[in-house]
């Protein structure tokens, strides 16, 4: 029989406890790069509502994970990703990608962005506004993919083809961030449980 000549994907290894040295050296405690990447997700010219997202990543014992790093990937308020394969234009300076580091003492993290718009899904569907998240840390052997949805988008969420893939309706709730106002600004709370009761839904993408 002939052989298929595909290569195999390089296997993953944990990011370890010192991921900050490479990806956020300021958080590791030193200043080296002219520009650290990933601190400004939306940029100064982004249209739409300015929001903040905060949360904590919780392990199987119920404790916050203090050395986690998250990356966010999202569309702009028109539902366009800053990528050549997504037709449409984004505002100058809108990247839609960011890095999020936890506080080493509390495990709390947060980021500022704009609320994304709905994005075309597969087969003519429309996906509710969402932010893709990728989570790495010591003890996580392959980065975890999940999505954040917004609780003030109930109708769009009810029709979202990805949320509806989750057989257990109760588990869909783990992907919904909850809006509160703080000092007149929109804040969404999104806690992620990697293991245990109400474990967050992760996706094999």
């Amino acid at each position: 029989m002939q052989r298929l000549d595909y290569l195999k994907e390089t296997p993953s290894q944990t990011a370890g406890p010192y991921v900050h040295i490479g990806l956020a050296p300021g958080a590791a405690g030193f200043d080296i790069y002219e520009r650290e990447l990933g601190w400004d997700i939306a940029g100064p010219n982004a249209r739409g509502e300015r929001i903040r997202v905060e949360g904590v990543v919780i392990d199987g014992t119920g404790s916050p994970i203090k050395d986690v790093m998250l990356e966010a990937w999202q569309a702009n308020s028109d539902g366009i990703h800053a990528h050549p394969e997504h037709p449409g234009e984004v505002e100058e300076g809108f990247r839609g990608w960011g890095r999020v580091i936890t506080d080493f003492e509390t495990g709390e993290w947060g980021f500022d962005t704009v609320k994304p718009g709905p994005v075309p899904g597969r087969n003519g569907t429309m996906m509710a506004p969402h932010i893709n998240l990728w989570i790495v840390a010591r003890g996580i052997n392959l980065g975890l993919n999940t999505r954040l949805y917004f609780n003030d988008e109930a109708e769009a969420n009810a029709n979202d083809p990805v949320l509806n893939l989750i057989e257990w309706e109760r588990r869909r709730q783990t992907l919904i961030a909850h809006r509160v106002e703080r000092d007149g600004h929109a804040l969404y709370r999104f806690d992620i449980k990697v293991q245990g009761e109400d474990e967050t839904v992760f996706f094999d993408i």
Binding site: G60, H81, I140, V162, D204
Partner: peptide, 28 residues
């Protein structure tokens, strides 16, 4: 690898066919 014991999801990940949100990514 002991740290993985409490940092590993118990449930299987949900298989998701790629949409634009997964096919696109940051450009540098």
């Amino acid at each position: 690898y002991k740290t993985s014991v409490t940092r590993s999801p118990h449930y299987a990940p949900i298989s998701l066919e790629n949409s634009l949100s997964e096919i696109t990514g940051p450009v540098f």
